[in-house]
């Protein structure tokens, strides 16, 4: 098992390195010269040259990449400025340290992701379970019809519809504003409510469909029949025998989806003007701020890859059948 985990962690490092190198090559080859961008309008060739020197842009590409990598773990120097580890460089636009930009925005993205995840897990799993148990009834058909609709709404469309109906027309919610939880919990909650719902709808519908088909599959299993034959109570059978095996695959997918969201819900954050990682990504791309683009790409990839490993380990813990196979 330890060997397996170590192997997986090795894989994580390799994939992250590959993502890093690929992103680096693409952006630093394709984009306009960052030195010219930093220099601005009143610029002399000498100044551009000195900026290139400080950023290390005159060195060969691989040396630059190595500098970037070692900066993350050991810190690096830009001319006279020292950037301590973990150093992801400085924004070309604001000269802020990219690391501190990330850490400032991450809590917002985490709030968005956690809130949405709670909503979609509750709605999805309960909805799917009810549909499966009442298979073929009016409940099932309506629920699954709604789920199909929910899967098909692009989230920016849903965001705008909700904002129009709830904020502009009915005025039951205020325009989202950046209030901290400590200052005003109610406004904080109201501001995050719409982003949570918008993000959760698509996932909830997907999970409801998955839960339903998984539960229906387990209801046909022999152990379920055995449990019934033993005369166990309905609720207990549902929990222990039908829901648990049906939820293992859901856990896996949930891990991946959640990890993906930690790297920023780009569209939702942009639409609602939430200052999370996703909005940072969109803004940095719009302004061609390469160090920031690098950092958000890496961060998002990091969450996805690590989430993948965690999910696989969890899976072996949750499903005894897989454990036997992998041993």
């Amino acid at each position: 098992m330890t060997r397996y985990i170590l192997g997986r962690l090795g894989g994580v490092v390799v994939i992250l390195l590959a993502v890093c190198l690929f992103t680096y090559l693409i952006f630093f080859k394709l984009s306009p010269d960052p030195a010219v961008m930093i220099c601005g309008k009143t610029c002399t060739p000498e100044r551009i040259d000195s900026i290139r020197d400080v950023l290390g842009l005159n060195q060969p590409l691989l040396t630059q990449f190595w500098e970037f990598l070692s900066g993350i773990f050991a810190g690096r120097d830009y001319g006279s400025v020292h950037c301590s580890a973990p150093c992801l460089g400085y924004s070309f636009q604001t000269n802020e340290s990219v690391w501190s930009m990330l850490t400032a925005r991450l809590p917002v993205s985490i709030t968005v992701a956690v809130g949405a995840a709670v909503l979609w897990l509750l709605a999805g799993v309960i909805g799917g379970l009810v549909s499966a148990v009442k298979q073929g009834t009016w409940w099932d058909r309506t629920g699954m019809g709604l789920a199909l609709g929910g899967v098909s709404v692009p989230n920016y469309v849903l965001a705008l519809v909700l904002q129009y109906v709830l904020v502009v027309k009915l005025q039951v919610l205020p325009f989202p504003s950046a209030v901290s939880f400590v200052d005003n919990p109610l406004v904080w909650f109201e501001s995050y409510l719409m982003p949570w719902v918008v993000l959760a709808v698509g996932y909830a519908c997907l999970y409801a469909r998955l839960t339903r088909s998984n539960v229906i599959d387990t209801l046909a299993e022999n152990y379920y029949r055995t449990a019934r034959a033993k005369g166990l109570s309905g609720a207990l059978i549902m929990r222990r025998h039908a829901l648990r095996p049906a939820l293992t695959p859901i856990t896996t997918i949930f891990g991946m989806d959640f990890a993906g969201l930690l790297g920023g819900a780009l569209i939702t954050e942009t639409v609602f003007g939430l200052n999370g990682i996703g909005k940072l990504a969109a803004d940095s791309i719009a302004k061609n701020d390469q160090p920031v683009i690098m950092a958000v790409t890496l961060l998002a990839a990091f969450f996805v890859v690590v989430g993948n490993v965690v999910v696989d380990l969890l899976y072996t813990a949750l499903d005894p059948r897989v454990r036997v196979v992998s041993a």
């Binding site: 993502v19 992103t23 394709l30 920023g264 791309i285 719009a286 061609n288 990839a301 996805v304 890859v305």
Partner: peptide, 20 residues
Amino acid sequence: MDFLMAFPALIFMIAILSSL
């Protein structure tokens, strides 16, 4: 495939499309 699926595709698509 692992590499591509680990990639934050949306961020990357936007970035690549805006810089090309």
